[in-house]
C-alpha cells in the first residue's frame, strides 16, 4: 500500500469529526478524539482555518466547519443567477454599443446562450435564449475555451466544422488563437461563424477568478468593424461589462 501523507489524513479526520455529532468542538476535544498532541492539532486547525475549511467561534474559541467547505460542494454558479446579476450591465452594453448582447456558458460541447439583449433599434428580433453556438468559431466560445479546461478538452475532441472560409479548424492554429485570447483578455470572431457577422467577447469570472461565462456583442461587420478589426471602443465596452458583472459576483478588481 502506498504511503499516505500523514498531515492530510489528520486534516481529513478532523473535518469528519467536525461534520458529525456535535457541531462545535474545542481544541482539546479534537486533539484527544484523534489522539494528537494539542500543538499538532492546533497547527492543522490553523491551516484549515486559513483555507476557510474550518472556522473558529470568536467567543467560545471552539471550531466548526467553514463556509468554504460548503461552497466546494456547490461551486457551480446557477446560470439564472448569472443572468439576474448581468441584467443591468448587459442592458447598458446594448444601449451604449448599439448592438445585440449575448451571455453564454459552456454546455455540452458548445456555448449555451443564457441571456440575450436586443439590438436597440426598432427592428424585428427573436429572443435567442436557449440556443447553442459553436465553441471553436464564436467569440464567446473562444473566451470560454481559452480559460476553462473542461471546455478546452471538449474542443479538442469535437468536430470543428468550417462554417465560412475564415473559420479556423486546425488544432494548432486554434491553440494560437486561444493563447492570444488569454494574453489580451478577450476574443473576436470576424466572419468565422456567419458571413457578414462579427463579434467580441470577454470572460466573466467568479470570486475564485474562475470563468463562469462570457459576455459579448454581435453585429454586422459594417457596423462593428473598422479597417477589418473590431472597433476598439466596442472591445473596451465589452471588457468593462465583463468586469462589472465579475465584480458583482465577488471577483476582486482586475
Amino acid at each position: 500500500m502506498a504511503k499516505h501523507i500523514q498531515s492530510l489524513e489528520r486534516a481529513a479526520a478532523m473535518l469528519r469529526l467536525l461534520a458529525g455529532g456535535e457541531r462545535r468542538l474545542g481544541l482539546s476535544d479534537i486533539a484527544s478524539a484523534l489522539g494528537l498532541a494539542k500543538a499538532t492539532a492546533h497547527g492543522i486547525l490553523r491551516t484549515l482555518q486559513h483555507e476557510g475549511f474550518v472556522e473558529q467561534d470568536p467567543d467560545s474559541g471552539r471550531y466548526q466547519l467553514g463556509a468554504e467547505l460548503l461552497r466546494l460542494g456547490t461551486t457551480y454558479l446557477d446560470v439564472h443567477e448569472l443572468r439576474a446579476r448581468a441584467l443591468v450591465w448587459t442592458d447598458d452594453l446594448a444601449r451604449s454599443g448599439g448592438e445585440a448582447v449575448y451571455l453564454g456558458v459552456v454546455h455540452q460541447h458548445g456555448v449555451l446562450i443564457v441571456h440575450h439583449v436586443f439590438r436597440p433599434d426598432d427592428s424585428r428580433q427573436v429572443l435567442e435564449v436557449g440556443a447553442m453556438q459553436p465553441m471553436h468559431s464564436t467569440a464567446l466560445g473562444k473566451v470560454l475555451t481559452a480559460l476553462d479546461p473542461v471546455a478546452h478538452a471538449e474542443l479538442v475532441d469535437a468536430k470543428r466544422e468550417p462554417f465560412t472560409a475564415a473559420t479556423v479548424t486546425e488544432l494548432p492554429d486554434i491553440e494560437k488563437v486561444l493563447e492570444a485570447t488569454r494574453a489580451q483578455g478577450y476574443a473576436t470572431d470576424l466572419e468565422e461563424t456567419w458571413e457578414g457577422v462579427a463579434s467580441v467577447a470577454a470572460p466573466i469570472l467568479d470570486r475564485h477568478r474562475l470563468p463562469v461565462g462570457a459576455v459579448g456583442i454581435t453585429g454586422a461587420v459594417e457596423r462593428v468593424c473598422r479597417d477589418g478589426e473590431l472597433r476598439p471602443e466596442l472591445v473596451a465596452a465589452v471588457r468593462d461589462t465583463a468586469r462589472s458583472v465579475s465584480r458583482d459576483l465577488g471577483a476582486k478588481p482586475f
Binding site: 442592458d91 446594448a94 444601449r95 440575450h116 439583449v117 436586443f118 436597440p120 426598432d122 428580433q125 429572443l127
Partner: peptide
C-alpha cells in the same frame, strides 16, 4: 420624443 427613447431589450 419620449416614445422614441424607448428601447426593447427583449420580447417573448
Amino acid at each position: 420624443d419620449l416614445r422614441a427613447n424607448w428601447r426593447r431589450a427583449a420580447e417573448w
